[in-house]
C-alpha cells in the first residue's frame, strides 16, 4: 500500500479543491445556482473499495469520463446519481425538476457536454498548477451501475497495480438538490510524477 505523508496529502487535497472548484464554478453559472464543495477525499484504494465509492457498486449513475494521456496517465470521471442527473437536466431545460422520464438524446448530450466542460476545466487548472502536460481524450458517457462504470479505470490500472490513487471531490447544490462527484484516478507512477513536478 502506497503511503502518503501529511504534506503530500495536503497538496493532493489542494489539487482536488482547485480543480473541482473551477469546474463547479462553471457549472454554477450554467445552472444559475449556488454549489458548495466538500473537502476532497484523497486516498489509495483497493479495487473493491474503489468500485463501491459512488453510493455502492449497484447504484445507478450517469458517468462522463475522459482518459488522460501525456506525462501522466489516468482518468477523470464526472458522475452523478441518476436522479440528480434528471434534476440537473430538468433545471437546464426549465421543466419540472421531479420528472424522471427516460433521457432523450438531447438530455444525454447535455449531460455529456456538462461532463466535458467540468472535466476540461478540472484538468486545465491541474495542468496550470502542476505544470504537467495533460491530454484528455474526448469524453465518453454511460448510464449504468457505478461498479460497472468504475470497473473500467480499475481494470486499466490493474495491469500493473492492485490499487488506485483517487482524488474525489464532491459538490452539492444549495437551492437545488444535486450531488456531483469529480474523480481523478491515476496509478502509482503518475502519482510519483505529480509529486516530483511539485517538488515533493
Amino acid at each position: 500500500m502506497e503511503r502518503m505523508d501529511a504534506t503530500e496529502l495536503d497538496i493532493l487535497t489542494e489539487i482536488g479543491t482547485i480543480g473541482a472548484g473551477n469546474a463547479t464554478t462553471s457549472l454554477a453559472v450554467m445552472l444559475d445556482s449556488k454549489l458548495s464543495m466538500r473537502i476532497p477525499k484523497v486516498s489509495f484504494m483497493n479495487f473493491d473499495d474503489f468500485v463501491e465509492s459512488i453510493g455502492g457498486a449497484e447504484n445507478v449513475i450517469a458517468g462522463v469520463m475522459s482518459n488522460i494521456t501525456g506525462e501522466i496517465e489516468g482518468f477523470v470521471l464526472f458522475a452523478m446519481d441518476i436522479r440528480d442527473a434528471h434534476r440537473l437536466v430538468n433545471r437546464l431545460r426549465g421543466i419540472d425538476l421531479s420528472k424522471e422520464e427516460m433521457f432523450t438524446d438531447i438530455d444525454l448530450s447535455a449531460v455529456k457536454e456538462i461532463g466535458n466542460i467540468l472535466i476540461g476545466s478540472y484538468l486545465s487548472s491541474i495542468g496550470t498548477l502542476t505544470g504537467i502536460n495533460i491530454r484528455p481524450s474526448n469524453p465518453v458517457m454511460s448510464i449504468d451501475m457505478a461498479g460497472a462504470i468504475l470497473s473500467f479505470p480499475a481494470i486499466i490500472n490493474s495491469r500493473e497495480h492492485d490499487e488506485v490513487l483517487r482524488i474525489e471531490s464532491e459538490f452539492e447544490g444549495e437551492d437545488l438538490s444535486i450531488d456531483g462527484h469529480i474523480m481523478f484516478i491515476a496509478d502509482t507512477e503518475s502519482y510519483m510524477i505529480i509529486k516530483s513536478r511539485l517538488g515533493l
Binding site: F47, D48, V51, A57, E58, D144, M145, A146, G147, A148, I149, L150, S151, F152, A154, I155, S158, D162
Partner: peptide, 24 residues
C-alpha cells in the same frame, strides 16, 4: 463475490457478484 476474487457455495445458498462491467 468481490472484484478480483472468487468464492464457492452449496445449496441452499446462492452466490452473486455486483456490477460486472468489462470484468467477466
Amino acid at each position: 463475490v468481490r472484484m478480483a476474487d472468487y468464492s464457492i457455495c452449496s445449496e441452499p445458498q446462492k452466490i452473486t457478484t455486483i456490477g460486472l462491467g468489462s470484468c467477466v
